[in-house]
Nucleic acid binder design. Structure first.
Lengths: 222, 222
DNA sequence: CGGATACTTGAAATAATTCAAAGAATGTGG
DNA sequence: CCACATTCTTTGAATTATTTCAAGTATCCG
């Protein structure tokens, strides 16, 4: 967790300042909201264990999933700009988060340049992430989107010490579809096609990637 | 420019610190790049006059426009995370920017809490902007996307003291299409349809919105 | 003025959606 | 712990939105 979440090269005093900062833990059970759109923003949250989705609700009821967050990732950065949360964060399995009070974070980061820089990079990385998604939604076909999504998940699991090619999806086909800008039926069909082509085997939420290079070809070609 | 770019409530000493920070001006002529993907990141840029697009280049040549920036808006925030720019920023008309050296900005913002807060909000606003776009690309139809795009432009022009309902597009149909995830022909056809329905009149790049409420209906219904 | 670039429009092709129905998985309360 | 209700997933067939290809017109810029 430290490695993923915190800048390296802090001294003992600085580490202590951080430990005081991040003292509140919260447990969210599957299906519950960590926060909802409209809630007052007071803290960022770091996922310690578990899995979340964030989603925007359009007035007409349409939902757009804007991200999936796992261990070591930060939630709530979009709320800094308005002092209130602009989306819902829903736990997709029983999860633990630590709460990072934002006022305190700003104070401490003003005193510790390394931390300040780290925080700015984290915000910026979220911008980059979103822009990668824009590319995906704006210029890829359904097949490419799903392939890119699976490769991204695979990489993130791997970074966290889990198997690269075997994992269980925490989200439904509808969540994936919303995230990737396609209907759940299209997600399902595309999984079946990948399965038929021997690129992966899929059984409900259980995924085994058999030919990762097959996925890579799909994302980069044509 | 001050109103758009800077936090209110700074004292004289703080305003001075900022003036020193933002001393370099640059002029970019139409078609030129302010920076390109891969360039080392050293400064953010604030648009003083003119109009930019930012675009991501996929390895296979596909281009994704990720934003259009006008007076008072900031460019380069995505580069903080990697120390190098991840997209190109191209001037769509002759433009002026001021350069904001990033190291200095971090230093000054650590000393002036109001400025620090303002900067964090600005980064966060960029995240929110991108997420709005995700919603647009992920769950709207071509007609809704273009309507939402025009309303957004209209609002931004209005905020800057220009006419809300009359403007000249700085970008091509292809740029708009890339931004909205559709082909240039679809953009053109959709403009023609809006024109035929009396929602707006369009003549090449000159737009006159006749029934803004018509656009609003399109974005929010169905 | 002339060449290049940008825009419009039509017709045919296609990717993705919608509707529908059946089968699998999941969770809950008795 | 099992039975039942619910939610989730798969798959087919018909429909639709958008793209592709193509050709002609307008506009811009040197």
């Amino acid at each position: 967790m430290r490695e993923l979440c915190l800048p390296v090269g802090l001294n003992t005093r600085e580490i202590e300042a951080l430990d005081i900062l991040i003292n509140t833990r919260r447990r969210i059970s599957k299906g519950e909201a960590l926060y909802r759109s409209g809630d007052r923003f007071q803290a960022l949250f770091a996922v310690r264990t578990g899995f979340f989705k964030t989603c925007l609700l359009h007035e007409d009821g349409r939902e757009q999933v804007t991200g999936f967050q796992m261990m070591g990732e930060l939630l709530g950065m979009d709320a800094i700009s308005t002092d209130s949360h602009g989306c819902d964060a829903i736990a997709l399995e029983d999860s633990d988060v630590c709460e990072i009070p934002f006022d305190a974070l700003e104070q401490v980061s003003a005193e510790i340049p390394t931390l300040q820089r780290h925080f700015h990079r984290t915000l910026s990385r979220e911008i980059v992430r979103d822009q990668g998604l824009l590319m995906l939604l704006g210029s890829m076909r359904a097949e490419e989107r799903l392939a890119a999504f699976l490769l991204n998940l695979s990489e993130r699991f791997h970074d966290r010490g889990f198997a690269k090619d075997d994992f269980i999806l925490r989200m439904t086909r509808e969540d994936i579809g919303s995230y990737l800008g396609m209907k759940l039926e299209t997600v399902s069909r595309t999984f079946s096609r990948f399965n038929a082509e021997g690129i992966l085997s899929v059984q409900g939420k259980t995924i085994h990637i058999q030919r990762p290079e097959g996925l890579k070809e799909i994302t980069s070609c044509r």
